[in-house]
Simulated scan of single mutants.
Amino acid sequence: MRIANSSREKNPQRWRDLRRDRITATEIGALYSGKSIPQLYADKHSDNSFDSPYMQWGRYREKKIIQRLMDEIKTVIDSNDDLFSYDDDPFFLSTPDGIGSDFVVEVKTIGRKLDRLEEIEAAGGRATKADFAADNILGYFGQVQTQIFTVPKPLCLFAWEYREKRPGVTIPNHPVENIDDLFTPGEWHFVRVDADDDAIRECKRLGVEYRKYVPSEPPKIPHSLWELQGEIESIERSIAVLQSDLELKKNTLNSIVMMSMEPGSVFEYPLGSVRYTVYTSRGKLDTEKLEEVLPGANAAIKECTRPGKPVTRITVKRRREGE
């Protein structure tokens, strides 16, 4: 069922709000690709948003690919940016890229070859879940299956274009009879929104244990954090370059001294002194040998050890392009 006033372009805030409170075809695809449900839940309820040049390119090419697909199959396809919900359970949403008479269209721009889907296309066949897995795009399979249910249409045309602009299209099979089959029993208690105890009732119906997942509230960290982290990384890169140059100069100095002097010697110059000293290596405590010689010594050392100062570690990692 099409949701009124849910256009991604015309009503972006409503589009995002609806997606945040339910589960989307894209997120089901992420589960197919291996993302954990707790991580998915945490991502949905964080303030983070992510866009990349690849995603922007995909949106730019989308309508052009659909137009070429229409020219090839001689069928009208309406471009779409509205949300659709599954009639039997509005919790499931999708935004297919195009809608035809008896099919939906999902468009992807891809930077590597899809060998198995190319074979299917050349043979005029329909791709299976195994074919998508063979090309390592199983997440796309979960995504298009959800679109089939939510629009609803019996088929999905999965159209792709390599970034060298070579087009391809294939039709995934429709191997599941019920949207429940997209999940294994027991996952519902993480995924469903627990409004009016819906999740509890659904778990009882499915015969699985209900365990509510409550993620910690993400802290409100200002955007300046990422700017500061960028400055830190820039300084660290500069330090690394200087450190490399420093090590090179130290090694050069040591080589000159070792070639000109004997260990233990020292020479005085008007500019200073040069001393060539060879230090003996420090020994390391062999705890196993110590225990053999003095049974219980290791325990005694631990007993006499004073606690050190507490260590605070803060790790900040910016998301890189393509992650």
Rank of each mutant, 00 (worst) to 15 (best):
E202L: 11
V169H: 05
N80V: 02
A123T: 04
M70S: 05
E291K: 03
Q229G: 06
I179W: 09
D87W: 01
D181C: 08
Y32Q: 07
K10I: 09
E202Q: 05
P263T: 06
S265K: 11
L138R: 14
E27R: 09
G100A: 15
N178S: 15
R306K: 14
P38V: 09
P307D: 10
E227H: 05
L69Y: 11
M1K: 06
R192D: 06
N5L: 09
I65F: 08
I314R: 07
E121V: 00
L157V: 09
L294H: 04
P167G: 05
K165Y: 10
S216N: 13
V107E: 00
D43W: 06
D181W: 05
D194A: 10
F92T: 02
F103W: 07
K302A: 06
V191G: 02
K153G: 07
S49L: 14
N80M: 02
R201L: 11
R318A: 13
V241M: 07
F267C: 03
R211S: 12
I235N: 00
T95R: 11
P12L: 06
T184Q: 14
T252W: 03
P263L: 04
D82C: 13
M70V: 02
E177I: 05
D21N: 09
L69Q: 10
H174Q: 08
A42Y: 03
R163F: 10
L225C: 10
F267P: 00
I77Y: 03
A299H: 06
K153E: 09
I239N: 13
I120R: 04
L248M: 05
E303I: 00
E247L: 12
M259I: 05
L93Y: 05
F149W: 11
P222M: 08
T277C: 04
R306P: 00
F158L: 14
V104Q: 01
L182V: 07
G34P: 05
I120Q: 01
K108A: 13
E292T: 06
R68S: 03
I137D: 03
V191W: 04
V266I: 12
C304K: 13
D286L: 07
S265C: 04
T109K: 07
P53A: 05
E231M: 10
E217I: 08
D181N: 11
L271A: 15
V191L: 15
R126E: 15
D197A: 10
L285G: 03
M261F: 11
I23T: 03
A159D: 02
V169I: 13
